[in-house]
């Protein structure tokens, strides 16, 4: 009896701890989000009343995020970069999955480690190494052949390549995990029924993989959108949103329009993350 009470007390303390953890998790995000709706020029208490001005107002000093040209341009570049990174990394990730699940070749374990490695290289180092490499090529071409290759200088292409370099490890791992669960007899059956290789891939293998393809595309998009460290060294004049926001924070200080952007990004990334989880859990149910 005493033991049971002790257990109950322990469980109660344990639950409080977990609850406190989730409060800790939510606190800063709530703080960043709520001041987007405060009718004040500063993101601080006291609460001055509810407003949507920081999203939609079109005049200074309360210029809303949807009328702020620089922020909108940042959002636009972020979207372009994230879409490219997502498409590229899902394509290469799919190739990698087939390579490592189906292929047999010498030193496979070594190459598999190589595939994981980019994930454990600090983003800053990925950024500077690609910057140095691209600049070396550009300078060599310029000095020896007089070619001016603008795209090898910091700019959108380098940002995409820099993010792609480590995002591909994530997509490869997600798609590999799914492909490992594939029952190859399904393909055999289709071959026996006379289907061509391409048709089997299109009608059987890829549909099976699609939850992993969608989920990894979403994750790649999100990782690219929020990336800062790698991007910082590769960015040219087309700054994505995180860079624009950081710039604003350092130069202007915190203004509620940054809260509005934060709120917008948190809701957007939260919904996409939720979608990626739902897509992947549907597969579990249909399998069971």
């Amino acid at each position: 009896m005493i033991n049971q009470n002790k257990d109950r007390a322990f469980l109660w303390v344990y639950r409080t701890y977990v609850a406190a953890f989730f409060v800790f998790l939510a606190g800063p995000l709530l703080a960043a989000g709520m001041f987007a709706f405060n009718d004040s020029l500063f993101p601080a208490l006291p609460w001055q009343g509810f407003t949507l001005d920081w999203f939609f107002n079109d005049t200074e000093p309360k210029l809303g995020m949807f009328h702020d040209r620089r922020l909108l341009r940042g959002l636009y570049y972020s979207a372009i970069i994230a879409t490219s990174v997502s498409a590229l990394s899902v394509f290469v990730g799919t190739c990698n999955a087939f390579l490592f699940v189906r292929g047999s070749f010498p030193a496979k374990d070594f190459f598999y480690i190589l595939m994981i490695l980019p994930l454990v290289i600090p983003g800053v180092i990925l950024g500077i190494s690609i910057l140095v490499f691209a600049s070396n090529i550009a300078s060599a071409l310029e000095n020896n052949f007089g070619m001016e290759l603008e795209f090898l200088r910091p700019g959108i292409l380098l940002v995409v390549l820099g993010q792609f370099a480590f995002v591909t490890t994530i997509t490869s791992l997600v798609i590999t995990a799914r492909l490992k669960k594939f029952d190859e007899e399904m393909e055999e059956a289709a071959f026996n029924l006379g289907a061509s290789r391409a048709r089997v891939l299109r009608t059987i293998t890829l549909p099976f993989l699609s939850p992993a393809l969608i989920a990894s595309a979403i994750v790649a998009f999100l990782v690219s959108f929020e990336n800062f460290n790698t991007t910082l060294f590769l960015v040219g004049s087309e700054a994505p949103l995180t860079i624009t926001m950081y710039d604003r924070m350092v130069k202007v200080g915190s203004t509620p329009v940054l809260n509005a952007v934060s709120f917008f990004l948190m809701v957007g990334s939260g919904l996409l993350a939720l979608l990626s989880v739902v897509v992947q859990s549907d597969k579990a149910k249909s399998k069971a």
Binding site: L25, G27, A31, L222, E226, M245, M249, N259, A273
Partner: peptide, 26 residues
């Protein structure tokens, strides 16, 4: 609840802490 905020950027997290912890903060 752990997966949804996983990909919220470092920048927004730090911004949240700034609003909580600074002199005029919450």
């Amino acid at each position: 609840l752990c997966l949804i905020p996983l990909w919220v950027s470092d920048l927004i997290r730090a911004f949240g802490w700034i609003l909580l912890l600074r002199e005029t903060g919450i």
